[in-house]
């Protein structure tokens, strides 16, 4: 008898790819994708159920299909397409998680719960330690936005884990997911021709490749391998760190340093015309940055990411095409200058 896996939020790219990936697992018999809107991408052999996780109907889905693994990927920072604004996203994140957990509690066959969380949990503040571990409590609790959703969602999940100790609960806190088809706010930001930055700050950023994100989710959703444990909370991020100034140079996009209040206004203006999501939280990330420790991911979860932060970013930069100041062009200019200067005294 194979496993039955339920995946929420399959209308998103990453969840859709996860569904296709887990279908090829021989131990999996059935995959059920759930979302409030039909996905634009194919789900191959998976069944799609149009259901809103904010409604109690989800409990019936769980009971009728005999699901044993729930992969909750419907925790997102931004709305998908034109599916309402921030309020709807927050409701899906928080109320949706509550309903889903309630349904899981009533479903005795559920054995495993995997939640896609985010390192937004830690916030970004100057008074926090430079590197967050899984057990670092955020010093300044986020006052709103996606970070607050994540903190609340994880709070409910801890409660669920206490009430159902027989269910293996795995929370994966992903760093910024980037890759050739990333559609996150940060990916949108890096697609701007000129990158507005906050004057006087150079945040440290960490990325995780889409492929690595999927691989980590797969490890968490299957039986633990020998010597590893896949329940608990894990930070998932590529090795190494890139500074925002470095990413801009590697992308070949000029930066426009602005004073902090100006950035807030510019963000509001950009958001109004729908160019990019520039939430206050995003601005905080681009001011103070965030880096997490990944020792637990390696030693306990037994997962080694294939891409480092720099490689993830290089892959992303290739997919976006050169900017206004392509780095190899600059390098050639400097080389030519070097040749000219070194040739002169030889004459």
């Amino acid at each position: 008898m194979g496993r039955v896996v339920l995946v929420t939020g399959v209308a998103r790219q990453l969840a859709g790819r996860f569904v296709r990936r887990i279908l090829s697992d021989p131990a999996v018999e059935r995959v059920i994708g759930v979302d409030a809107v039909a996905p634009a991408h194919p789900l191959d052999g998976a069944e799609f159920l149009k259901a809103d996780i904010r409604h109690p109907a989800i409990a019936r889905v769980l009971a009728e299909t005999g699901v044993d693994t729930v992969v909750h990927m419907d925790v997102n920072g931004t709305p998908l397409g034109s599916r309402g604004g921030r309020t709807a996203v927050k409701e899906t994140n928080v109320i949706g998680t509550m309903q889903l957990l309630g349904a899981c509690q009533k479903a005795p066959r559920v054995q495993r719960l995997v939640v896609k969380s985010s390192t937004s949990f830690y916030g970004s503040a100057p008074r926090d330690p430079a590197v967050f571990g899984e057990d670092t409590p955020p010093k300044s609790l986020p006052s709103g936005g996606f970070a607050k959703d994540v903190v609340e969602v994880e709070g409910y999940i801890r409660g669920f884990a206490r009430r159902r100790p027989d269910v293996a609960v795995c929370v994966l806190r992903f760093a910024n997911v980037l890759g050739p088809c990333a559609d996150s706010p940060l990916a949108e930001y890096f697609s701007l021709p000129v990158l507005p930055t906050v004057l006087g700050y150079d945040p440290r950023l960490q990325f995780v490749h889409e492929e690595d994100a999927l691989a980590a989710l797969l490890i968490a959703a299957s039986e633990p391998r020998r010597g590893t444990l896949n329940s608990g909370t894990f930070n998932i991020a590529g090795d190494g760190v890139l500074l925002l100034s470095q990413t801009a140079r590697r992308l070949g996009r000029p930066t426009l340093p602005l004073l902090l209040p100006t950035v807030t206004w510019a963000g509001a203006a950009l958001r109004a015309v729908g160019v990019s999501d520039f939430s206050p939280e995003q601005i905080r990330l681009l001011t103070h940055g965030r880096v997490v420790r990944t020792t637990q991911m390696r030693e306990t979860l037994g997962f080694d990411p294939q891409y480092t932060t720099a490689e993830t970013f290089a892959e992303f930069a290739r997919s976006r095409g050169p900017g206004l100041l392509p780095p190899d062009c600059l390098a050639r200019t400097v080389d030519r200058l070097a040749d000219a200067l070194c040739a002169r005294p030889a004459q």
Partner: peptide, 21 residues
């Protein structure tokens, strides 16, 4: 030459920083 190599690395962003920046 060393200075130009340094400039080249800085302009293209090909340098390393550790977790603490």
């Amino acid at each position: 030459a060393g200075g130009l190599r340094f400039l080249r690395r800085r302009l293209t962003g090909e340098y390393e920083v550790d977790d603490f920046g």
